[in-house]
Simulated scan of single mutants.
Amino acid sequence: MQTLQAKNLVQNPVFEVIVLGDSGGIEDGNLSAFLLRSLNSVNYVALDAGTLVNGINQSIKRQAFANLPIHENQKWGLAGTILRDHVKGYLISHAHLDHVNGMLVASPEDSNKNVYALASVNNMMSETYFNGKAWANFSDRGIPPRLNKYHIVDLVQGETVSIAETGLKVTAFSLSHPIESTAFVIENDKDLFVYFGDTGPDSVEKQGKLDVIWTYLADQSKHKKLRGLIIEVSFENERPHNLLFGHLTPNLLMEELHNFASKLDDKAAINQLKVVISHIKYTLESGTNPRHKIKQQLTEANDLNLNIIIPEQGQKLLF
């Protein structure tokens, strides 16, 4: 009985993820963005922010926040209360518009909070968007006038920092993409969750950046529990490698996860690991649904017994 109880205790969820946006590419109301919180906290950190307010509204419709104790501010309404009072910061993987658009357009009515990113990402945000031309400078860095709403925090690869008002910590790692992208390893005591921004595979990019992350996670898994990860699969297997532009296919993702599994002392650590697939490219092509084909290809390639999840906007997931 004690063994069964211990097993059940381990399986109790620790993290909650709200899917604000699940797609890559051109579907502007549903671009890469997730909210993550520890179940011990009422506050989230945003994992990218391609779609923000629309994602919150769609999540409200699906009752994703039903169990969150919210004191609704009558001035701002439910969506505004969630954004202003319960989203305490942004982890921005890279500065491509489909990962930051929601934060930019919501900034006039957002509350003060931190933006965490690698220095190259923060610098590009300042140069490209918060420059008084593409958008007013809502940050505390760069071209004046600075509105000082967002405090910019430069992350250093491999160094762990606290995410304010969430009880979480984060360690950033560089990823291969046409501009520098980021993976975020997020900690809640002895539990881990990983969010990958856009990334190419090591076999194509030849930079070994994913191998660094798999090695780190394998080492961490010796004394911490990896609860799940969000990682992109943008294209079907048929996509030529020279046209990937720093993205993954089902086969290339499985190649990377096999590399991770090979580094684990306890191979059972990856059994039924929840792997959430993000950034599937939306298309207007008639009669084409990449999500269906990518799901089929992932299912066929899943010889690691992973729990592969194709998320939907507004969905709540527990890890």
Rank of each mutant, 00 (worst) to 15 (best):
L253Y: 02
L52W: 01
P250A: 03
N242T: 14
N30G: 06
I179Q: 12
S221M: 12
V42S: 14
V19Y: 00
L229W: 01
G158F: 02
H86R: 09
N67Q: 14
Q157K: 13
A268Y: 06
T299V: 12
L229T: 10
L175S: 05
H292A: 15
V105M: 00
I26F: 00
E127R: 13
L273H: 02
T51Q: 00
G228C: 06
L229S: 09
N271P: 07
I213P: 03
L78R: 14
V42E: 11
L9E: 14
A268M: 10
L9F: 09
G29Q: 08
T166Y: 01
D28S: 12
L155E: 04
D189Y: 01
K316Q: 13
K222E: 08
E109D: 10
G29E: 04
G246F: 07
Q296D: 13
H99D: 11
A183W: 03
T128A: 08
L252C: 09
Y150K: 09
N8R: 13
L175R: 01
R239E: 07
D98A: 15
L155S: 07
D202C: 07
F130Q: 02
N123S: 13
T3N: 14
Q296V: 08
Q297Y: 04
I270N: 06
I82V: 04
R62V: 11
I152Y: 03
G77S: 12
K293H: 01
V170C: 03
W214T: 04
L155I: 04
L104A: 12
F184Q: 10
D303P: 02
H96P: 03
G142Q: 07
T81V: 07
R146K: 15
G314F: 00
A6R: 08
Q2F: 12
Q5F: 11
L217R: 05
D303G: 01
H292M: 14
K222H: 04
Q207C: 07
V233K: 03
Y90T: 11
D28M: 10
N188V: 09
S38V: 07
V10T: 14
N43E: 06
E232V: 13
I179S: 06
Y150A: 06
L47I: 04
D98C: 13
L284H: 11
M1E: 10
I308F: 01
L97S: 12
P240N: 09
K209D: 06
N123D: 14
Q2K: 15
L91R: 11
N57M: 10
E159N: 12
E205I: 06
Q11W: 03
F65M: 01
F65P: 08
V276W: 02
L4G: 05
D28K: 11
K267W: 00
G102Y: 05
Q220I: 02
L9R: 10
K113M: 10
L104T: 11
G228M: 07
L244P: 04
